[in-house]
Design a protein around this nucleic acid. Structure first.
Lengths: 340, 340
DNA sequence: CTGTTAGCGCATTCAC
DNA sequence: GTGAATGCGCTAACAG
């Protein structure tokens, strides 16, 4: 038995396809009697409208794309969960685009815009090129950036400079002067802006405290626990090792903790560690960190996109989410613990 | 400037739309000269084929649906990462369906099958109803179950009975007899089969060791850390508290660890704890657990689905993934630690 | 090899 | 209110 089409329903109900379509779309201008005839035909034939056909003729895809770099990244996942939460209650499908490789990124951004694959786009932690912007604007594709910045796009951001400064100031307040920073790659193909912002925050804080910047104390590597572990190992085996390490992400901070354990260092006596994100694991490990509202950023981003899709904005808006220092055991001894 | 269509390209290149279509689809039967004419027209007009139209006329959506219960669940996320990894290299888009609520589930399963929303479907940790099966078969929708079981569908499974037995046997081997089990709800609207399997494993192991089943030592609650923490608290404040707790998931085991901490119990001396899954956090917390190949289950599931979509199977296959006991510090004292 | 044509299934005009 | 006709943009089958 082949799938029933709108035509089958029309024939069975003894009406025209137009009427069936009206019933499907809850048009008010259908007599109750015909409506029920159609509905029962639909029931009997077990009919269900074909999405694709509906999309083509209506010109809308009823789908929202979410562009995600490194889906294995804990903070990205958390943001995505917020997005899922919002979209699940909407009428839109969620199409997930993962861009691990740069070439994927370019191909995708080009296609998504010009092929009308989605009605709206959320871009996580990724700054689009200017040429992609042209495509979005030209295709009139509503898009919202989450955790990334571009003057021409609406966006959900956090103040990464402030966050990093706060982290480093916390270490300085505790008396540290040999403060290292393990960063993500600042020069990355994804144009990831938080990286340079946090670096700036690190530098500012040192400068404000008149602590000279020590190039040896700056390391960068992939956003990966193992790599951070190695970088931290290098730092901690310097002739004059740092007494505190600020890590770009909690994931990397965990690598630092492992390196400290490898070297039998006491936390926080021998080494203070502070991360960034406040992912769930940070709680269990009692990791001092900078909390950013990951989940909420996804929620806000999705909500904003839905609004924009309904009533386009005249110019991009920016929603800034708060950032907060969460002090736990990796920077301060236990008598002053913050309890989650 | 309106989007260019295939007709514009054809006109500009001075050929028929059929030829343009052939060029787009890399048909070998196009003369090199005409091909290049078409290609340059495409370039100049900045043309890019409309996905939806292509889908309608070809009858394929070039999309794969992934049905996910509770996207906030760590193990689900891990499996999904495996799926994403595979699909990113395919030509298929990934449409994510989250079903937190039961009503969503039913509506989705019905629609996905009958509306031809996707060419293939991956269902995570969810056992479809028989009536949904009918829809899949009728719609000839290739589907693969990951971490769920149904005789009519191909599936990636693990032996949950064996896994739970192994966990409990480990505790028994360590001399425990007062062994509690904190489970997910066995009666759940999602027909989640691992729940009953692990319960069976728990019971078997006790029985084989001639340890009487103590109803007081069985608790169930949501797959949630906080809830597990409360359940564990109840268990640990019994007049005769258990000396070991087996938790349905690592997430719940972490809740148990917190409860132990709340009560100032030493792990593993006062209480042994074993989880299930081996999520990343388990490593950091040195949690003894049953490892199942979460990521790999996603990879295998996606690969299997792609195969089935290419060449349909005559009957469902079952791929069983291994399960492994990972002993860490929450069950044994440190001199015999397993190091990750 | 290539142009033409007929749908794909539905929404949306129009007349009635 | 309702039916018939037109087109969304493309693929595929059919002639040439």
């Amino acid at each position: 038995m082949a799938e029933a089409t709108i035509r089958d329903v029309a024939r069975y109900a003894g009406v025209g396809v137009g009427t069936v379509s009206r019933v499907l779309n809850n048009s008010p201008s259908v007599a109750d009697t015909t409506r029920s005839k159609v509905l029962s035909a639909i029931e009997i034939l077990n009919y269900s409208p074909n999405q694709t056909a509906r999309r083509l003729s209506s010109g809308k895809t009823m789908a929202i794309g979410v562009l995600v770099p490194f889906f294995t990244n804990a903070s990205v996942v958390r943001r995505l969960q917020g997005i899922v939460e919002v979209l699940a209650d909407s009428d839109y499908d969620l199409v997930l685009f993962d861009v691990e490789k740069t070439q994927n990124r370019d191909k995708l951004l080009t296609n998504i815009a010009s092929r009308k694959m989605v009605d709206g786009l959320l871009i996580l932690s990724l700054r689009p090129h200017d040429r992609d912007m042209q495509r979005f604007l030209q295709a009139e594709l509503p898009a919202v950036l989450v955790d990334a910045n571009h003057p021409q796009l609406s966006r959900i951001v956090v103040d990464n400079v402030w966050g990093a400064e706060t982290a480093v100031n916390h270490l300085i307040d505790l008396g540290h002067t040999r403060i290292a920073y393990i960063s993500d790659y600042r020069e990355n193909p994804f144009n990831f802006s938080p990286t340079s912002d946090r670096y700036a925050g690190y530098c500012h804080a040192l400068q404000a405290a008149a602590i000279p910047y020590n190039p040896n104390y700056y390391r960068e590597g992939a956003l990966d626990r193992e790599e951070a572990r190695h970088l931290a190992h290098d730092l901690l085996t310097l002739r004059e090792p740092p007494t505190a390490i600020f890590a770009y992400s909690d994931t990397q901070a965990i690598g630092v903790l492992q390196a400290a354990q490898d070297l039998d260092l006491q936390i926080p006596q021998d080494l203070a560690v502070i991360g960034y994100d406040d992912i769930e694991t940070a709680v269990y490990l009692d990791l001092t960190t900078i909390r950013q509202s990951l989940y909420e950023s996804g929620v806000k981003g999705a909500q904003l996109l839905l609004e924009i899709m309904q009533t386009p904005l005249t110019e991009p808006v920016e929603i800034k989410l708060p950032t907060e220092l969460i002090v736990r055991k990796t920077t301060m001894t236990s008598e002053v613990i913050y309890t989650a």
